[in-house]
Structures are given as structure tokens and as C-alpha cells.
Design a protein around this nucleic acid. Structure first.
Length: 292
DNA sequence: ACCTCGACCTGGGCGC
DNA sequence: TGCGCCCAGGTCGAGG
């Protein structure tokens, strides 16, 4: 689920409902995603805080308070949604692009690990089936502090990620280009889906050693990475199974995927059978004709 | 320093 | 209907 476009979708959809709201209640049902933080400390740190507009760097979303931040990483199946008091628990709303869509607003269930009550009666729910996600309350509030704490590389939609940044980061690495692009310490925000899409669009095989990517190809890849991410955001994210926005809506980028998950099928570009390989432990789909 | 792999979790899909 | 197996978008630490 949540790569950069999905996290950005959650961030945008939550903003209008949480900005300026004050935390009045914090309940933790399962502390797994707190990763060792004491429940009482976590609760005390949040109570009374006023939520600002959430921010994002890569796949990390955070709420910077005055002297600390609430940080949320959705892992593989994390969902951060707001349950509104004036909305029925299940109802249809009009999605910007897809038209009528059922939203997922429901009471806490066995996967809803953390609930943060706000002063207007709404509740921010963190739900995570596989519990690979994490929720932190950290003393830092400056964005640079948070990025360095998690050792994150450049966010591909920010200016630090330019042609030179990409080129200098890949031209000496021996690992497959696929593995290098997945490295969050280098580029923060790409995951399996968008790396496959970007490499296909750029015509580069995922298994090629990063150092064997030519400068020209690197420049093309730089554009393609941004394009597939922006397209993903405009589509409201990719929903393969669990992903929903902050108000429970599915994305529809899955309908526009060109190569991810299409192994065994015909390549949309040339008709040859899409290949499947594993790099850095992740399944990759690629076309031996369209990608070199 | 770089790179790969297993572990962490639960649930869905498929074959039998 | 049930069981076993494989697979899944992420990250971290161990070990080569």
C-alpha cells in the first residue's frame, strides 16, 4: 500500500478535518506499533496538543507540534482515518474522479490499535492489520531533525532530488537499480509499485547494476520517477487491497498501472510476455523488449 | 561500506 | 468446509 502517493493522499484528505483540533483523548488497544514507547508517556505527550496541518517526507507523515511531533509510518497495511460525528458509519460520497464511492468509516475493530479523540468529537483512528507500521511521539519538531532521525534520503518531489542527486547516488552502486531505488536512505518514498512503474517508463531493466545506468538514462529516470508519483497522487493512490485515504476512500491508480504485477500477461507496449524476477527480496515485473 | 536475507504480522487466494 | 502453502505495498538487524 503506502508509498509516497498513498501517504500524500492521506495527508491531504486529513488536513481539513484535523488542522486546529485539540487532542482530548488517547486510547491504545495494542501497543505493538508504539515500538517500545510507554503507553502513558505516549498519551501524556499528545493530550492537549493542537494538531497542525500534517506534513510528509517520503512515506513518513508527521504532525509538528510546538516542541515535539507525532509521527506515523503506515508500514504495509496501516490506515490513518478520521471518523466524523456528522457522517454515517458507512455512506456513499462523491469521489473527485471516480464518482460515487462507499467510504470506510466504522467503529474501532480488532485492528484499530490507536484512537485519538479530538475536541469536536471526531476521532483519528490508526488501524493496521499486519502491524508493520509505527506511531511515535518524538521530542523533535523541526523537519530536519525528523528526517535525520530516520536517516531519510531526498523526497523525490522536493528540489533536493534533482538530476545530479540521482546520478551521483546510482553511478557507483553495484546493486540492481531496483534495489537502489528502494533504498529509503537514498530516495525516500519509492516502494515496489512505483519503482517498477518508473523503470518501465524509463526503459531500464530492474536487474541492471545501478552503475551501468548511463547518464542520459538516469536523467530520463529522474523525470519518470516524478511522473509516476504525481500520477499516483492525482489518482488518489493505488488500492490493491487495504489502502484508503484519510476519509476512507479507495484510490484508483491501480487501474493505470503499466507494469507492476502484470507478470505473465502481455506487455502493454509491445505485446511480449511480461517477466518476473526478484531483486532485494521484492517481486519485479518487467519487459525484456521495452526495458534494456 | 555495501548487499542480501530472514524476521516481523495477518489475511486472502488457490490447490487438494 | 478445511487445511496447507504461497503471496502481499515496508523496514530493520544480522551476517557475508
Amino acid at each position: 500500500m503506502p508509498e509516497l502517493p498513498e501517504v500524500e493522499t492521506v495527508r491531504r484528505s486529513l488536513t481539513e478535518f484535523v488542522r486546529g483540533r485539540t487532542v482530548t483523548e488517547v486510547s491504545v488497544r495494542d501497543a505493538t506499533v508504539l515500538r517500545g514507547q510507554k503507553i502513558d508517556d505516549f498519551r501524556e505527550a499528545l493530550l492537549g496538543q493542537t494538531l497542525p496541518e500534517p506534513r510528509r517526507h517520503g512515506k513518513l507523515m508527521y504532525f509538528p507540534f510546538k516542541d515535539r511531533s507525532l509521527i506515523v509510518h503506515l508500514g504495509m497495511t496501516g490506515q490513518l482515518t478520521v471518523r466524523l460525528t456528522d457522517r454515517a458509519d458507512t455512506e456513499f460520497t462523491r469521489h473527485q474522479k471516480t464518482g460515487l464511492q462507499r467510504t470506510l468509516q466504522h467503529p474501532p475493530d480488532k485492528h484499530t490499535h490507536i484512537s485519538i479523540g479530538l475536541d469536536d468529537g471526531s476521532v483519528l483512528h490508526y488501524r493496521d492489520i499486519r502491524k508493520f507500521g509505527r506511531v511515535y511521539s518524538v521530542p523533535e519538531s523541526q523537519r530536519d531533525d525528523i528526517i535525520s532521525r530516520f536517516k531519510l534520503g531526498a523526497d523525490p518531489l522536493e528540489s533536493l532530488f534533482d538530476i545530479q542527486y540521482l546520478w551521483s547516488g546510482i553511478n557507483k552502486r553495484r546493486a540492481p537499480i531496483k534495489a537502489v531505488l528502494l533504498d529509503q536512505k537514498f530516495i525516500a518514498g519509492l516502494g515496489n509499485i512505483y519503482v517498477d512503474e518508473a523503470l518501465y517508463k524509463a526503459g531500464i531493466r530492474p536487474g541492471r547494476g545501478a552503475y551501468r545506468v548511463k547518464k542520459r538514462e538516469s536523467s530520463a529516470l529522474h523525470v519518470c520517477i516524478k511522473q509516476v508519483l504525481i500520477k499516483g497522487i492525482e489518482a488518489g493512490g493505488t488500492t490493491l487491497r487495504d489502502f484508503v485515504s484519510g476519509v476512507g476512500e479507495s484510490g484508483y491508480n491501480q487501474e493505470g498501472l503499466q507494469i507492476y504485477g502484470r507478470y505473465g500477461q502481455e506487455c502493454l507496449g509491445c505485446g511480449h510476455q511480461v517477466q518476473r524476477s526478484t531483486y532485494a527480496g521484492r517481486t519485479s515485473s518487467w519487459c525484456r523488449v521495452c526495458q534494456r
